[in-house]
């Protein structure tokens, strides 16, 4: 039963950590552009993407 003495605080602490992380992320605007964030990972920053010759 003594395991409870540290298991319960550990569970609560981890939960509280998650809660704090969630508050931080909403405040920082992490959810403002969900679609953009998902697509931006695909952009290859190394090469030129806009080719002047290709533009109509």
């Amino acid at each position: 039963m003594t395991a409870l003495l540290w298991l319960i605080p550990a569970a609560l602490g981890l939960g509280a950590l998650g809660l704090i992380a969630f508050f931080w992320s909403t405040k920082e605007g992490q959810y403002d552009d969900l679609e953009g964030a998902a697509e931006r990972i695909l952009i290859d920053d190394d090469g030129p993407i806009v080719d002047d010759e290709d533009e109509g």
């Binding site: 953009g36 697509e39 931006r40 990972i41 695909l42 952009i43 993407i49």
Partner: peptide, 8 residues
């Protein structure tokens, strides 16, 4: 709509 659009 897409990643290419963002980049362009």
């Amino acid at each position: 709509r897409c990643a290419a659009c963002i980049a362009r």
